[in-house]
Simulated assay, not measured.
Amino acid sequence: MFVTDPAAFLAEFSDERYPMRGAATARSAFLVSPASGVLAEESARDNRYMDLSRTPDPVRALRQHAELARRLGADVPVLTFPGDPDCPDGMFPNNVFATARGNLIVGRMRHPVRRREAARSDIRGFFRDVLGYRELDLSSGDYVAELTGALVIDRARGIGYCGLSERCDMAGARAMHEAFGLRLTFAFELAAGEYHTNVVLAVLAGRVVILAGDGFADPAVPDAIARAYGGQAIRLDPAQKRAFAGNAIALAPDRVWMSAAAAAALEPAQRRLLERAGFSLGAVDLDEIEKAGGSLRCCVAEIF
């Protein structure tokens, strides 16, 4: 089912209709190393979190990225592909590549600089020839569909939350609903200036949601999502959102990962909610990578 109205979403959502019967967290993950000393000017046109005046330090970015891979390896096996200097946003592979039901899904990127990433034969070949995954290629579609940047998925229930923006239109949302084999997708408009849903929403192993209310065009949308999860919701203020506290991920049932800046922005009550839900908090310094307009969740492509 595909819905666009908060009331329709709440009328459809229930634990009886959508029980947690699937894997809530990934079995593995892959990253792509940073390889460029410049920021992607095309991406900056619709990514308010980028600042072209802040020149990244490629050596420091690479060091932080390697530490991220090492730390995440405590929860799942982590594979790192080499970066491409011609793809300055390549260290955010989850927008371009995703997996579901034994399929590698390749997204349709808005900007040409990012479409280069979708053509990588090594990543496609690894999933096809090594893992035996089928390929669902959305990259030439007549829509925009930036995968798990635009689409936040409750994998345990098969429910997708798709924010519409310049990085994902309605046709792209419907294409992803089919490609991921989702049972229910709730599509909604992001607030003006927001580019990806995974900056304003995270679903943590199907148990807790993190929401930045000002990132949604209609305040009824985050209210409906929080209600669906029984109030197990961390509400972010604008400063916490800018610190990327919404760009979080659970790769194991008992731990949430976010950047060090994001973790530092959390209030004690928010940390206690995570603890009561059974999550410890892992944090990694990523300030150099965050200059490119994304954070920890953006770096991680999950393998299901």
Rank of each mutant, 00 (worst) to 15 (best):
M1T: 12
D5W: 03
P6F: 00
A11K: 10
S14M: 01
D15V: 00
R17A: 15
Y18P: 00
S28H: 10
F30D: 04
A35P: 03
V38T: 14
V38I: 15
L39H: 11
A40N: 15
E41A: 15
D46H: 14
D46Q: 13
R48A: 15
D51G: 01
D51M: 03
S53T: 14
P56Y: 00
P58C: 02
P58G: 06
P58N: 03
P58V: 02
Q64A: 09
Q64P: 06
Q64I: 09
Q64K: 09
E67G: 06
A69E: 02
R70K: 13
R70Y: 05
A74H: 13
A74Y: 03
D75C: 12
P77M: 08
P82H: 04
D84T: 11
D84Q: 14
P85N: 10
D89H: 07
P93S: 01
P93Y: 01
A98S: 15
A100T: 10
G102Q: 00
I105W: 11
M109K: 07
P112A: 11
R114V: 12
R115H: 12
R120A: 14
I123V: 15
F126N: 09
R128M: 03
V130Y: 07
V130D: 14
L131P: 11
G132Q: 01
G141C: 09
Y143L: 12
V144C: 12
A145G: 04
A145R: 12
A150V: 08
I153N: 04
D154P: 00
R155Y: 08
Y161R: 04
C162R: 01
L164V: 04
R167M: 07
R167S: 12
A171Q: 13
G172T: 09
E178A: 15
A179Q: 11
F180N: 10
G181R: 10
G181F: 11
L184D: 04
L184S: 03
E189R: 13
A191E: 12
A191R: 07
E194H: 13
E194N: 12
N198I: 05
V209M: 07
L211D: 11
P219N: 01
V221W: 10
P222M: 12
R227Q: 15
G231A: 07
I234F: 03
A239H: 08
A243Y: 00
F244D: 00
A245G: 11
A248P: 04
A250V: 10
A250H: 05
L251C: 06
L251N: 08
P253W: 09
D254H: 14
R255V: 15
M258L: 15
A264N: 00
L266M: 07
R271Q: 14
R272T: 15
L274A: 11
G278W: 12
E290F: 02
K291F: 00
L296P: 05
F304I: 02
